[in-house]
Design a protein around this nucleic acid. Structure first.
Lengths: 94, 94
DNA sequence: GCAGTAACTTTCCATGTTGGAAAGTAAGTT
DNA sequence: AACTTACTTTCCAACATGGAAAGTTACTGC
């Protein structure tokens, strides 16, 4: 039985995972703009996903301001796919 | 832009809506067994969906114990379909 | 017809989540 | 050295969720 993953189910985290599932790597500012949330809120969602082992944040100090890049881990990708499968099993084909 | 409906998004209510979307009419006891929750919890979720105008509860006093039958309203069906569409737009084809 | 039980409903309470504001930190810019 | 950017953490307030227990209403049995 596929169960919904509460770490992923929260709307904003679902969106983060979906975007990272599609695009592989995104930075903090872009994600913040997409979700339209405050810095603190995004930071906490990222932390929640990191704590679950679903994503990794990497601070790159390329020229200019430091930027935090986010990407799903293999476990995060798997968890997201399973979550989507669980959604499918609940609502039928999406 | 299709938005997630927080009344429907909660796991147990998502399941209730999905079941009622597929089966049209189910009774309290069956739903309670399917969701594996307490009476009070199911009662409150039903109330939340009713308050949103998404479902109607009908108490039938056929022979034997009274049974509460639940079904989605037209608005509930629409909201559920839109919620599923929103999920699709977020995660891609389910 | 009165006790007992089934089928909820409501209240109480404890815990967890979510979100923004504000304060804090670290590093780059001027 | 002061300012700004890019977060992070702390502090709160509000709401969500869940079970237990108590309350209702209506059958059922005797």
């Amino acid at each position: 039985m596929l169960e919904l993953d509460s770490v992923i189910h929260a709307p904003n985290r679902l969106k983060i995972c979906a975007m990272l599932s599609a695009i592989s790597e995104l930075d903090f500012q872009l994600l913040k703009a997409e979700l339209d949330v405050s810095d603190s809120v995004l930071s906490k969602h990222i932390k929640a996903l990191e704590s679950a082992g679903y994503l990794i944040a990497e601070k790159r100090k390329t020229s200019g301001r430091p930027t935090t890049w986010l990407k799903l881990t293999a476990a995060g990708r798997k968890a997201f796919n399973e979550h989507v499968a669980a959604l499918k099993s609940i609502v039928g084909e999406l």
